[in-house]
Write a protein that binds this DNA or RNA. Structure first.
Length: 489
RNA sequence: GGCCCUAUCGUCUAGUGGUUAGGACACAAGGUUUUCAUCCUUGAAGCCGGAGUUCGAUUCUCCGUAGGGUCACCA
């Protein structure tokens, strides 16, 4: 907690992706936790780009990942666009810094150039495999390594080959044996540092107090610690996050096996606050029954001591439910905008389409969907057509339960029309009131079913009062008239 | 395979040396309702196994088992 050289009380966290493609829910959750923890303490959250493997770099991914974070309102105080006093938050622009530390290690006799060719290394590995023992580079450490001229990899000379024990804010005391320690590469032959070396230097230089990352790094931790020791750095607080598992729980969620680009969820219409809420709760919980959180509430409630140790499966059903919960907290205006975006052109081109009707439809529509793609699907299936076009339907659909003849239905519709012609159309409720007494006399189904059918043209739809309110008095009367005109004589 | 991590309903999880093991999603039933959806009520569903410690373990310890991770000039 007291590692920031400039301000010992300030919490500094970072998210450090490599620009090798998109961000999926796993990486986003790591970013989110780091962000929440920093904001909770009025600290600093840094976005650092770890682009030290130029061969894996994917063009455009730098912009893409920034857009992903911005969508979710995970805003960095310093980043590639705003490096502050750090000089740069992009590792490829910090090579001089790594070189300085590398030379420091060489001078202390703690780093040396690796003289072997790749083939030689491969043969070492192979031999180790045949002899069924783990391969360790330090078993082959050259006695008189050449001077480092930048064309050969630079390796750490591990001094204390020992069992490392360290503390983790989530897992408690962790340890690993000396077989996990090796002379790992600090600077590659192309001049770029490895992740192992660069992230430690950057974290130190940037005053990072809490290092949050997924548990796949636990096994590398002794190696990292040996680098901290060689450089003389004190350790930050390590916060190991549990993995997010695939829905089938067979393995950790990863790009290779189907993890989606987080921005695909945006395209599907998931609300950013729902996604943030969902991800916050997968691997962490507040210890209360509260499940729906705004971002501000998350910042207050979040606590690294309540981060889960075991991996958790990604659950799409719960995400959908979460999205619905956040939709229900939107204003009517926001919902209209949300639905308008999702509505396909085929619906918007219907003859009676208007913003006024859409506004009336939306509250009812929202009840029936969880996410924007549902709007699209339902719309394409014609579920909202009743609001925007006079329906076509099979005439016998007007028959209710015990009705045997359309002639039984006709007088009821005529009476409904008469009542509606004098009804108060200010709300679905007032429309309902105008029909209620009559409906209680003849039977509710006897009137409401055919009325609803002639207004919607469908077996299933919102109730007739709502439809009547949406389409208005004139259209309502017209549709009823259409029905009994069709019935004939 | 070596090393490391993890283990409460199907899933996300709360929780405790003595609890009717709590909540949420999903599921089922019932209710409301002209239909669908919403909503309400109820239900089914869990402490991985075996030893040990203890008057008593889901909880503490050990050993299994299972799952995951990792063993790069990737991060």
């Amino acid at each position: 907690m007291d590692l920031n050289p400039t301000n010992p009380t300030k919490v500094v966290t970072r998210f450090a992706p490599s620009p090798t493609g998109f961000l999926h829910v796993g990486s986003i959750r790591t970013a989110l936790y780091a962000y929440l923890w920093a904001k909770k303490h009025n600290g600093t959250f840094i976005l650092r780009i770890e682009d030290t493997d130029k061969s894996r770099e994917v063009p455009g991914s730098l912009e893409h990942l920034q857009e992903s974070l911005r969508w979710l309102n995970i805003n960095w105080d310093y980043g590639p666009d705003n490096p502050g006093t750090y000089g740069s938050c992009i590792q490829s622009e910090r090579l001089a810094i790594y070189k300085k530390y590398a030379e420091g290690l060489i001078n202390k006799g703690l780093a040396y150039a690796d003289p072997y060719t790749e083939d030689e290394l491969d043969s070492f590995r192979e031999r180790a495999k045949i002899e069924k023992r783990p391969f360790l580079y330090r078993d082959h450490r050259p006695e008189n390594p050449p001077a480092w001229d930048g064309t050969k990899p630079l390796r750490l000379k591990v001094k204390d080959v020992k069992r490392y024990t360290w503390n983790d804010a989530v897992r408690g005391e962790l340890s690993a044996g000396e077989e996990m320690l090796d002379d790992l590469i600090l600077i590659k032959s192309d001049g770029y540092p490895t992740y192992n070396f660069a992230h430690i230097i950057d974290d130190y230089e940037m005053g990072v107090t809490h290092v949050m990352r997924a548990d796949e790094f636990i096994s590398s931790q002794p190696k990292f610690l040996s680098i901290y020791d060689a450089l003389g750095f004190t350790y930050p607080v390590f916060v190991t996050l549990p993995p997010i598992m695939r829905e089938d729980r067979t393995k950790k969620l990863g790009k290779r096996d189907g993890a989606k680009d987080i921005l695909d969820y945006r395209a599907d219409g998931y609300l950013p606050e729902a996604m943030v809420n969902f991800l916050a709760l997968i691997g962490w919980n507040p210890g209360t029954d509260q499940e729906i959180f705004s971002e501000a509430e998350l910042i207050v409630a979040f606590d690294i001591t309540k981060i889960q140790r075991a991996g958790a499966a990604f659950n799409k059903e719960k995400l959908l439910w979460m999205n619905k919960q956040h939709l229900l907290r939107k204003t009517p205006e926001q919902l209209v905008e949300y639905v308008t975006k999702a509505l396909p052109d085929s619906t918007k081109k219907l003859p009676q389409y208007s913003i006024e009707r859409l506004k009336k439809l939306v509250p009812n529509l929202i009840e029936r969907i969880q996410v924007a793609t549902d709007v699209k699907t339902a719309s394409e299936a014609g579920e909202y057509d009743f609001a925007f076009t006079t329906p076509e339907y099979e005439i016998n659909l007007l028959l209710w339960k015990n009705d045997t003849s359309l002639m039984q239905v006709k007088p009821r519709l005529e009476k409904a029309k008469e009542l509606l012609a004098n009804a108060d159309f200010t709300s679905a409720e007032t429309i309902k009131v105008s029909l209620w007494d009559y409906a209680e006399q003849v039977g509710k189904g006897e009137i409401f079913w055919p009325l609803r059918v002639c207004l919607s043209g469908k077996k299933q739809s919102p109730d007739p009062f709502t439809i009547a309110w949406i389409i208005g008095q004139v259209e309502t009367i017209k549709r009823i008239k259409n029905a009994y005109d069709k019935i004939g004589e």
